[in-house]
Design a binder for these strands. Sequence first.
DNA 1: AACCTATGTGAATGATGATTCATGTTTCAT
DNA 2: ATGAAACATGAATCATCATTCACATAGGTT
Lengths: 211, 211
Amino acid sequence: MTANEQGAGETAIQGPRKPKTARGKKTRAKILRAAEECFGTLGYHQAGITDITRYAGVALGSFYSYFSGKEDAMRELVREMGHNLRAHLAQNVAGATDRVDAEVRGLRAFLEYIRDHPWMYRILQEVQFVDEAVYREYYDTFSEHYARLLSEATQAGELRPGNNQVRNWALMGMGHFLGMRFALWDEDVPMDEIIKTMDDLLRHGLARSDQ
Amino acid sequence: MTANEQGAGETAIQGPRKPKTARGKKTRAKILRAAEECFGTLGYHQAGITDITRYAGVALGSFYSYFSGKEDAMRELVREMGHNLRAHLAQNVAGATDRVDAEVRGLRAFLEYIRDHPWMYRILQEVQFVDEAVYREYYDTFSEHYARLLSEATQAGELRPGNNQVRNWALMGMGHFLGMRFALWDEDVPMDEIIKTMDDLLRHGLARSDQ
DNA sequence: AACCTATGTGAATGATGATTCATGTTTCAT
DNA sequence: ATGAAACATGAATCATCATTCACATAGGTT
């Protein structure tokens, strides 16, 4: 039940191991990709380990060579997505002219990521009900980084004064719902239209006449 | 598997029935409340029918007297929540001075609802992975009503021109995340602070100097 | 070649838990 | 009071997996 025992001379007869050779790495990767596909299409509970291993083209037992169980694979997938998405965003936000521009570029990159990795995003959402701690960790990590950027922009006088913690979560929520509705469910509104609308909202608010 | 057979002279030996007497209504209600509690605390998959009936203080079989299965109870709970929440919001938004004021009052009422019915909100989120159609239906219904209000406000010149469909989902997303983080997970930021921040965001945007 | 470690295999195990159904009890209209 | 419809009961059924384990095979080192 505890973490991966990898130390020397352990008593454990067998447990999940980190692959030591290229062959092992490849197998583990095949299983992870298969898990992504199965969890994504079938859902965590519907997907069986046999589905995953059949899809990966390996024996049932091989799953347990690399993962301590179903949840473990799910967690790994979420961590992986966290890294990939953060990298993708960092790459796309670079070069923004101001904080709002960065937000909007970030939103576009986020929507693109969801569109291109729909399974991954579904898995992130479902992990909430499989291992809530992992879900919170994901957003807390994200939020931590995010809050700093907003604070710096506020310091610099780029943003109106206000509670950045709250804004932070509001912005993540926007992204989440826009992604779900317009990237995952139905791409019936062009990306540029979404971005334009959100740029305006973030720059000027909703109300017609300020003051 | 199909819907509740309630018509006259059906062949079905037995199926879920609508309660015909006060006793029946009471039992069904007890089961539904128990299901809410169990799904909410244990989660849909973890909660067993036996947990629900034990908590309700009725026999296992009674569950199937009123529901065709586990999913059916879940669906019913989500529908119930939709009605209750919509009523709560309508009540609290009445008397708003302008559209943004209505948004902000709606947000406050929404956060209060989540705070007071945390289980219900968890269930709504989990239904996404139990019966996605119900989840979409919930938000589509919400969105339909919402989009009309935004359009009217735009017509009236209260709101800046823009894609209200997009704004609509962005606003729902804000509400969702703010509720999850500040009403469900941790009430570490006072409601008034959240409201003040969001009022400012919706009235003026994020950027310090317009134009 | 001999040998050790990393990998790979899939039948068997063991729990779990949703759903059914045959039977008993209550309510109530007549 | 009495019979029928509603309602309530919970042991038994049935199917589904996650996980284990005893036994192969492959790769590379001496």
